[in-house]
């Protein structure tokens, strides 16, 4: 099953275009509304949000796949390695 469902982004009322995923555990996020912008918002589960204060996201919020992450001493966020376009899977 392709975890990145697609939906229409046209019409008067933008509906959910993509399912979003929790950056900590990689499971579907609780909120799914996403208007199709280039960067989906991150909606981690409440318990996961607490963990994300002390560790970088390990999963892509767009497709739920594991990310390559490089942590540096002073880098606030992780460096995310390029990954294939999930919509083409």
């Amino acid at each position: 099953m392709n975890r990145a469902s697609t939906g229409s982004t046209t019409g008067a009322t933008p509906g959910p275009a993509f399912r979003t995923f929790c950056g900590h555990c990689g499971l579907p996020a609780e909120k799914e509304a996403y208007d199709g912008g280039s960067t989906p918002p991150s909606y981690p589960h409440p318990a996961c949000a607490v963990r994300l204060e002390l560790e970088p996201p390990r999963f892509c919020v767009r497709c739920g796949r594991r990310l390559k992450v490089q942590v540096s001493p002073l880098l606030v966020g992780p460096l995310l390695a390029p990954r294939p376009n999930v919509r083409s899977r």
């Binding site: 560790e55 970088p56 942590v71 001493p73 002073l74």
Partner: peptide
């Protein structure tokens, strides 16, 4: 250790 660790985040430097 200032800042982040190897795989987790530390306090801001």
């Amino acid at each position: 250790i200032v800042g982040n660790y190897l795989t987790t985040l530390g306090r801001p430097a």
